[in-house]
């Protein structure tokens, strides 16, 4: 019983936090990733929106949306994950809006950051605190 319980847990993301591998020497920090994306430029506090649940029912599948008027790219980072990068959305000439939605994995309660690179060369940053709960039943 214990064994199968453990195995089941091991399959879930709940176990992710328990089995995080040591950060490799090459794993970039959040600050480094932001610096790489912005080239060290200042970031405005407005101009990009990150929509996410305050509490995620399961950290394995958390719905998020990003939007930034006039953005050419939006980068999303999960600051509390073993590796912070989540994805970068680049908008092409036929993008109907500068927005996108997806579903992401969060290892634990943490701050998720979205940084938009705008077409005028400036940057905007926002973040959201997402609480990740552990369910009641392992089932």
């Amino acid at each position: 019983m214990n064994f199968s319980r453990r195995e089941t847990l091991g399959l879930g993301l709940g176990a992710m936090a328990l089995t995080i591998l040591p950060m490799g020497a090459s794993a970039a920090t959040v600050d480094e990733l932001i610096a790489e994306f912005t080239g060290g430029a200042d970031m405005a506090d407005t101009g990009v929106t990150l929509t996410a649940p305050e509490i995620a029912e399961n950290g394995n599948t958390v719905p998020i949306s990003v939007e930034a008027e006039g953005a050419s790219e939006i980068m999303v980072l999960a600051t509390g994950n073993p590796t912070p990068p989540v994805g970068t959305f680049k908008f092409g000439p036929l993008a109907g809006s500068r927005s996108a939605s997806t579903r992401i994995r969060l290892a634990t309660t943490q701050e998720v950051v979205a940084i938009a690179k705008l077409e005028d060369g400036t940057f905007a940053r926002t973040s959201a605190e997402i609480k990740v709960t552990i369910g009641g039943c392992g089932g």
């Binding site: 399959l11 029912e57 399961n58 394995n60 599948t61």
Partner: peptide
């Protein structure tokens, strides 16, 4: 059921 669970995808 069957249900798609976010937990085990």
């Amino acid at each position: 059921f069957p249900v798609y669970r976010l937990k085990n995808a």
